[in-house]
């Protein structure tokens, strides 16, 4: 069993209204040091696969087919072996 952690964010070229609003809020709370904030989505899932390579292939397919809209979004993910199950 493997565990995948997938991060999806809007592409750099796409304006992120949520990110801007949250960053503005941080600034107004005094966190002037914050910059370049992007709001994204996080997926955490378990999957069965014979190898880490196969798990990676599967996760990529899931992202390309459903989890990510390539017109506006990009993604990155990590895969780790989940020994407990």
């Amino acid at each position: 069993m493997y565990k995948a952690k997938i991060n999806v964010t809007l592409k750099k070229s796409v304006f992120d209204p949520q990110g801007k609003t949250v960053l503005d809020a941080l600034h107004s709370l005094g966190f002037q040091e914050a910059s370049k904030l992007r709001v994204g989505k996080f997926f955490d899932l378990n999957l069965k696969a014979k190898s880490e390579k196969e798990a990676e292939k599967e996760v990529r397919a899931m992202c390309d087919k459903l989890l990510v809209n390539p017109v506006i979004e990009e993604y990155e993910f990590q895969i780790e072996e989940d020994g407990k199950s």
Partner: peptide
């Protein structure tokens, strides 16, 4: 073609 984003005003 294209995609939808959150309204600019949120």
């Amino acid at each position: 073609p294209g995609a939808m984003l959150r309204n600019r005003s949120l």
